[in-house]
Nucleic acid binder design. Structure first.
Lengths: 112, 112
DNA sequence: TTGACTGTTAGCCATATGGTTAACAATACG
DNA sequence: CGTATTGTTAACCATATGGCTAACAGTCAA
C-alpha cells in the first residue's frame, strides 16, 4: 500500500520531469485540447509525442477521450495533488526549520 | 536561459522521482545528517546510495560538507522552491475549474 | 472510393538510470 | 604501525527513456 503510493508518486514526478510534458499540462490547464492543438509546435516527431502522452496518461495526469479521429485530452487535477502535497509538506518542514533558526539567531542578538 | 531554467526544473523533479531520494530529503528536513545516518536502513548497496546522493546534489537539493571521514548532508530548501512553485501554479489553475475535479474526488471516495 | 488527416504501433538506436561487486582513499583508533 | 570505518570510483549489467523512420488504423470529406 505504502509501496504502491510511492510508485504513484514516482510516476507523477517523472511525468512532470520533462519540459514537453510540462508544457502539455500547462496548456491543458487552460482547457481540453486535442493532441494536435496541444503539441503542434513541438520540435519532435509524432511518435515521440505519442510516448509522452502515454507517460502522462499512465501517471494519471491526463485523461483521453477518443472523438472521431482526434483524441481530446483533459487534465486530471487530482492526480498531481499527491505530488504537490509532498513538496508542500517538505517545504513546510524546511520553512519551519528556517523559522526556528531565525528565532534562535534573533534571541542571540537580543540576549547577547 | 529559459532553457536552462527548464533543465533545472527537470533535475529537481527527477531528483524527487525516486522513493529513496525522497526519503533522504524527508530525513534531512529534520536536520543535518551524515550519509550513514540518512541511509543506514536502505536496501541497496553503498555505491547505489552514492549515486542517489549525486543526483540530489546535482539538482541542488542537498549540500555536502566533508567532515573528517564522514559527509554531512544538509537540505537546500531553496532548490525545490521552483518545483513547488510550478506545481502550485498548475494546481491553482486546475482548482479554478473545481467542478471538473470534484467528479474525480467523488469517484475516489466512492471507490475507496 | 480515393485520398487526406489524426494519431498510434513496431522496430531500431543512443544514452540514462539504477543496481551490482571489487577496489580504492581518507580518516580514526587500538 | 595496522586495522576498522565511511564513503567514493571503476567497471559492468539490465532495463528505461527519448528520439527517429516506416508503416498502419481509423475517420472524414471530395
Amino acid at each position: 500500500m505504502a509501496n504502491s503510493q510511492a510508485a504513484t508518486l514516482d510516476r507523477s514526478f517523472v511525468a512532470v520531469a520533462h519540459p514537453l510534458r510540462r508544457t502539455i499540462l500547462e496548456r491543458l490547464a487552460e482547457g481540453e485540447l486535442t493532441v494536435g492543438e496541444a503539441t503542434h509546435d513541438f520540435p519532435v516527431s509524432k511518435p515521440a509525442i505519442s510516448k509522452h502522452l502515454r507517460v502522462l496518461e499512465e501517471a494519471g495526469a491526463i485523461v483521453r477521450v477518443i472523438d472521431g479521429r482526434t483524441h481530446r485530452l483533459r487534465l486530471n487535477g487530482a492526480s498531481l495533488e499527491e505530488a504537490y502535497a509532498w513538496l508542500a509538506r517538505q517545504r513546510a518542514l524546511w520553512e519551519r526549520k528556517l523559522d526556528v533558526v531565525e528565532e534562535f539567531l534573533k534571541e542571540q542578538e537580543d540576549g547577547a
